[in-house]
Amino acid sequence: MFDAWMVDKVLLATWETVYMVAISTFLSYVFGLPLGVILVVSSDGHILENKGVNQVLGSIVNVMRSIPFIIFLILIIPLTRLIVGTYIGTVASIVPLTLAAIPFVARLVETSLKEIEWGLIEAALSMGANSWQIISKVLLPEALPSLTLGVAITTINLVGYSAMAGIVGGGGLGTLAYYYGYQRYEHGIMWVTVIILIILVQLVQMLGDSLAAKISNRRR
């Protein structure tokens, strides 16, 4: 079962998973981070209070978060096709992975930023800071340890999602487990993918924890 050909297959699938997850984590923050910031600063009594914007964005985020990923994946196939040209393969998987993670990231960022004491924002306002300065010099730096942990949580979530995407031909460890483990009853392959996924998740969590601790310790 584990000939050189199979080892190559496992290595390639692992690489595909890492690649998919890394790029979709990155892209989900490119969109999710600003979205989370807007959710916070537009909330009641905050620096750019705007009920309309807050409610509309909040509702969109809630709707997207309530669709199970496996259904979302199929639902947006037309969009994936439009962007990538196909809906099969590693690159195509990045579209649903990113889109599903954006609202998740937005809520994580929102939670992190809401923990910052209002007094700090008030102090910055009293010095004449504008909204952008408050976001870039107070909110984000103060929340950095918490935001770092959020990145780890998002990445781990996307590892799980990427395996689901694998079932509909998304590539990576999910596809490998499905084709060989499920359709050909090669349970060994199934276990190998499970172990690799466990290791990946552990690595990401450890990296996130140690980075966050490093930042916090420097400030202690």
């Binding site: 004491e117 102090a123 800071a129 400030r219």
Partner: peptide, 24 residues
């Protein structure tokens, strides 16, 4: 608003809980 921000630069304020940035 922009005039107020400039005016605030000339009004210092200190607080009960200091409100220093822990990141700096």
């Amino acid at each position: 608003p922009h005039e107020l921000r400039t005016a605030r630069q000339k009004i210092g304020m200190i607080f009960q809980h200091f409100n220093l940035l822990s990141s700096r």
